[in-house]
Write a protein that binds this DNA or RNA. Structure first.
Lengths: 240, 240
DNA sequence: GTTTTGGATATTGTATATAATATACGGATG
DNA sequence: CATCCGTATATTATATACAATATCCAAAAC
């Protein structure tokens, strides 16, 4: 097994799904914009079949929306949708943490600490915000893994990705939120280390709901400014 | 608009997804069995493309599982998975009901009562159990709709469908569970009518967790008998 | 002037054909 | 006898070709 052997076990459709997901999360593809199968196919040098299958997968993740015979558009979340997203996260994650804590080994704690350190390193080196969401998911999923709840984790990862799309907007601007999140992460891992379930779940809940409120504040101010999250206005720019 | 005009606005792939979903839910397609694209295509008289797209959608719903270059199989849920399914339902549904209750109109209550009556009618006429799950979802979704939580509802419907597959096994045999569910439904709607949030959510939680325990008991006894839910044994019958 | 209607164009949906990958089997080799 | 390897077969994955549907625009009708 040569170490560099990066055999593409994946299918083209799966690779495309990854590429398109990243584009959606980093705003390269704006919310509401139409995804033309032909254009994507020729751009990636493939046929439309794997493009369609990639889009179908992304639809399952809630990142795109399909209308039969009209096509796919990047999904648009209203402020209410975003609020629901974070409320759901809080509900699921608190439950996961509560179940995980009794089974949490020292190895898990150690891994969590190392991810928290990575956050700090990243901040020091002014690294791009690209993988903030990935790191965040790594930390959270590490803490929840001992719960042994695979289905919940799959659902939650979708929610994290959807949330990530909007968090990235905010993180580009609001360094404060970033700092707060990092310090809360450290406190959270510390509480887990002490096996203080009550305080850990309480902090986690606050952590998520505070992120929710800060994000909504950010989005509302920006929307009032001018562009941004469609606040209910049914714009028709999704189809040419 | 002629009343009988049943224009197929749907796509073939969507129709196939519906057909296959029903087959999975009613055990016509056993858990773990392989889904051969060619066979399905020729059976339905279509090409393999819409078959693949239908399977992709079902994968998003958790009803089938794909392995690249090997194919799709009907997903197999372990007892732990089923337990998780119902725990998740309880978590989400209690939250939904709590949010829905303050906004619940008399119309919603009336609709809920009518569905409860339909349950009773169905029982009297010894109707087939086919649409038990549909009715159950109608009742529950009616009660939760005022919460205005579309994303949660989509996720929950998937969970209900997955659960339905196993509940159907049980309902064929255990009339007792059926009776209990119906009486609990009536009590639940009554509590909603009185706007007794505390008792309603408590009953709902119990309702779901009792169903969970009865189902697990049923599955475990049946498994010990002989066939049934694969209790962790990694059988290899999914691919020829 | 507004609405309607027809067809031209763009785009999606499905069928057929080809390529890639996995599985099964049998024979060669030690 | 066990193991390895190559080939035949089955099945999936993708490309290309065709059909169905939607959108747009201009001309006709009122």
């Amino acid at each position: 097994m040569s170490p560099s052997a990066n055999f593409k076990r994946q299918t083209v459709a799966a690779t495309l799904a990854d590429a398109l997901r990243e584009r959606i999360l980093n705003q390269e593809l704006e919310e509401g914009s139409a995804l033309r199968q032909d254009a994507l196919a020729s751009e990636f040098g493939v046929s439309r079949i794997p493009v369609r299958e990639a889009l179908l997968q992304l639809e399952g993740e809630g990142l795109v929306v399909q209308v039969a015979h009209k096509g796919y558009t990047v999904s648009v979340l209203s402020c209410d949708d975003i609020r629901e997203l974070f409320d759901l996260r809080a509900l699921l994650e608190v439950d996961l943490l509560r179940r995980a804590l009794p089974r949490m080994t020292d190895e898990v704690i150690a891994k969590a600490w190392s991810i928290v350190e990575t956050f700090d390193d990243r901040l020091k080196h002014k690294a791009e915000e690209v993988n903030w969401g990935v790191l965040n998911w790594q930390l959270h999923s590490t803490l929840y893994a001992p719960a042994g709840r695979e289905q919940t984790m799959r659902m939650l990862q979708s929610l994290h990705r959807s949330a990530d799309r909007y968090l990235r907007m905010q993180l580009k601007i609001a360094q404060r939120s970033n700092d707060r999140a990092r310090s809360e992460h450290a406190r959270l891992v510390a509480l887990c280390e002490q096996r203080d379930g009550v305080e850990a779940t309480r902090l986690l809940n606050e952590h998520i709901l505070t992120a929710r409120d800060e994000l909504l504040d950010f989005l509302i101010t920006r929307t009032n400014g001018s562009n941004g999250v469609d606040d209910k206005s049914k714009d028709d720019r999704q189809f040419r």
